[in-house]
Simulated scan of single mutants.
Amino acid sequence: MTPPALLIPGGRGQVGVELAGLARGARNGLVHAPGSGELDVTDSAALTDAVDSFTDAAADSGLRPVVVNLAAYTAVDAAESDSATAAGVNSTAPATLARICRKRGVPLVHVSTDYVFSGDARQPYEPEDETGPRSVYGRTKLDGERAVLDIHPRSWVVRTAWVYGAAGANFVSSMVRLEGERETLSVADDQFGSPTWAADLAGGLLELAESVVRRDAPHRVLHCTNSGVASRYEFARAVFEELGADPERVRPVPSSEVPRPAPRPAFSVLSDRKWTDSGLTGLRPWRQALNAAFRHHGTRWPGR
């Protein structure tokens, strides 16, 4: 199959780097993955020019373009006191991008988050379950989802969770750094989710992009994470194990003992049932993925 041409706003983040590398290396397709320094997604004229020029380049190459939007304001705690900036990137920009893509007839895959849910569930969230974000970050991401789906009939929202990779700040890179700085570490044992390696998520997004140029995926809101469930405490212990450090140095505490400005969902496990129902490949278990990530990245982890 001829690969799709991919325009990836937010392409310098941890998932964008993986997606661009995978698309270029395995499919040899046309890929443009600008970071925020190259493409300001809050600038509607710049967005229009980026989509127009990329769509024209794809046509010249005989390829069908897909936009995968990874641009986001992800500073969850900072968003609590910087809601205007968070809304501009997470809500207004996706709406603008959806209008531009609709006008040019380009499919849009928009990546979102588990933070759109309240975290009160006791079983994995399905895409159609009631949302109820408790943070500015979650609310702005939910507004962005709704705008994309309302504006562009050929758009898909992919929610993910607990993403880590070597290209940016995340839970794993923090644990790697703190393992070298502290004798013991207190980590919440009452927050549960599915740790997701950026490279595995990128593979899923590429598969979806390839799918939507062949046919429309039957479900427009999808969940994609590595499978299985872990607490933050269990996740931290697993990182220590991968480092060859004693996991007993990680101590379990309730979230109340490690307060943050933005509340975290206590339970944010996402069901991939509609992902696999759409004919897409489910991601491997989170513990296998973490081991593979450390084997792949080795000493390249930030802070190590």
Rank of each mutant, 00 (worst) to 15 (best):
T2E: 11
P4R: 02
A5P: 03
I8V: 13
I8E: 02
I8N: 05
P9I: 01
G13S: 04
G13D: 02
G13M: 03
Q14I: 01
Q14N: 00
A20V: 09
A20D: 06
A20I: 09
A23T: 06
R24H: 12
A26D: 15
N28G: 15
L30T: 06
E38L: 08
T42L: 07
A45T: 12
L47P: 01
D52C: 06
G62V: 01
P65G: 00
V66E: 03
V67R: 10
A79H: 12
E80K: 09
E80H: 08
S81R: 15
A84V: 11
A87G: 15
A93I: 02
P94C: 07
A95E: 11
A98I: 13
I100V: 15
C101V: 08
R102K: 13
K103Q: 11
G105S: 02
V106M: 10
V111H: 05
Y115T: 10
V116G: 03
G119T: 07
Q123A: 14
E126I: 00
P127E: 01
P127G: 04
E128D: 13
E128K: 07
E130H: 11
E130I: 06
G132P: 02
R134E: 09
S135T: 11
V136P: 06
G138P: 04
T140Q: 13
G144D: 14
V148S: 13
V148G: 13
D150S: 15
P153A: 11
A161R: 11
A161H: 12
Y164D: 01
A166F: 00
G168V: 04
G168N: 09
R177G: 06
E181W: 04
R182C: 15
L185F: 04
L185V: 12
A188H: 03
D189C: 14
W197S: 12
A198H: 09
A202W: 05
L206S: 08
L206P: 03
A209T: 07
A209F: 08
R215Y: 01
H219V: 01
C224S: 06
R237M: 08
F240S: 11
E242V: 05
L243D: 07
G244P: 01
A245C: 05
D246I: 04
P247C: 09
P247W: 09
E248W: 02
E248H: 08
V250S: 10
R251N: 07
P252Y: 04
P252K: 05
P254W: 01
S255L: 13
S256C: 06
R260Y: 00
P261Y: 09
P265A: 14
F267Q: 14
V269P: 11
W275E: 07
W275L: 10
G282Y: 02
L283W: 11
P285S: 03
H297I: 13
